[in-house]
Each structure stands twice: as C-alpha cells, then as structure tokens.
Design a binder for these strands. Structure first.
Length: 199
DNA sequence: AGCAAGATTAGC
DNA sequence: CTAATCTTGCTA
C-alpha cells in the first residue's frame, strides 16, 4: 500500500519560520492542472522573516506585491523575479506578521513526463526541479497561483511520511543583503539541491 | 517620468 | 560573464 498523503494544516505554517522551513523538507509540493498533476519532494528551502530582514520582500513595508506575506499562514506567495522567473513561497507565522519560506528545489515525484514537456526533453531528471525558477516552470506555477490556499486549492503541500535522513543549514544564496543569516536549509547531499555559488 | 536593482537561468 | 525582462521604490 502506498503511504497515505495528508495535506499540511494551516497550523503547520503558523509557527516560527525557521521551524517551518526545516519541516517542509521531505514534504511534497503538488500542483493539479488541466494538463495533469505534477509533484516533487521539497529538498531545499529558505526562510525570509519580517520587515527587519533586509532580504525579505516585506523589508520596505507593505506593497501591492508583497501583501500575501502579511496575510494568514498557509497561503502561496508567487512573484516574478528578474522579469523572467516565478518563485513560490509558503507564507508563515500569524496573520499580520510578514514571513515566508521560499521553495528552492524539489526531487521529482509525479508527473515527470509533464515536467519534461514544460522544461524540455533534454533536461536531466535531477535537474527538472533544481532551482526556484526551474521548479515553478516544471510544475506550471505562475502568477495565477499567487495567494492560493496551500491547504485546499489545486496547489498543496502534503506529508507523505518520508523521513529526512539529514538536514544542513547555511547562508541564503542569490541575495546581496541579509547574507549573515544561515536561513537556508537542505537535505544533506541530495542531488537536486541547487548549489550555485554567488560571488 | 526615468532609472537602477533584484530571493535567476541559460547560453556563449 | 552576460543578456533576458518586469516590478518596485527612489529621485527629479
């Protein structure tokens, strides 16, 4: 019998963001579209916490773009980065407290054929959802998925009962401010973790 | 109104 | 190393 998958409840996200980030590792991000269902296990995530975190989108205060961060936990925050890539976050902590976990990499679980169709047939399996912009493309996540409820919408995060063998922590990558916080976590040694070095 | 920078990626 | 491409927030 396959392990029963259960959607993570809102209470899962209504906790300190670092704790949510670590516990999201091993969980499965699922997107159901008319084209089919695609899913992947989260292997890398970063925490962005409050207006005092210079790298958090909430740093300038509330704006039209970052309003989801100020809303209730368990909601998706999707935005366009560099004008090209969509990045997906899970909003955390109590309503009114802006914080979120950025999903940076997945290990493909289901819908691999669909992922190849979206990303290109030449892409290696371990690279299909490697990197925050790549995984949204593979799962078909765009601005239309912004503010979806991760508990009850077509975009969900589920617990498959997977055990995480090891977790590593380090500085967040791809940012120029806030690098002093070791708020990036990943499954130690997993091949789908984005290991890009930023100068 | 104009401009620089940004939680990235692919290609040369 | 650099282009691609668009929203935000600051300056004028």
């Amino acid at each position: 019998m396959p392990t029963r998958r259960t959607k993570l409840p809102h209470s899962f996200y209504n906790r300190p963001t670092l704790q949510v980030a670590e516990q999201l590792l091993g969980k499965v991000l699922v997107h159901r579209t008319p084209s089919g269902i695609a899913s992947g296990m989260i292997v890398e995530a970063e925490a962005y916490i409050g207006e005092d975190d210079p790298a958090c989108h909430a740093a300038p205060g509330p704006t039209r773009r970052n309003v989801p961060l100020y809303g209730p936990p368990g909601i998706a925050y999707v935005y366009l980065n560099y004008g090209i890539h969509y990045l997906v976050n899970a909003v955390t902590e109590a309503d009114g407290h802006p914080a979120a976990v950025l999903i940076r990499a997945l290990a493909p679980v289901g819908g691999v054929v669909l992922m190849h169709a979206r990303r290109g047939a030449h892409v290696a399996g371990r690279d299909l959802c490697r990197g925050p912009g790549n995984l949204t493309k593979a799962l078909g996540i765009a601005l239309s998925e912004n503010q979806l409820d991760l508990v009850s919408s077509r975009l969900t995060i589920e617990d498959c009962g997977c055990r995480v063998p090891g977790v590593s922590w380090g500085p967040r990558i791809g940012i120029r401010v806030g690098v002093e916080h070791p708020w990036r976590c990943w499954m130690t040694g997993h091949p789908s973790v984005s290991g890009r070095v930023i100068k």
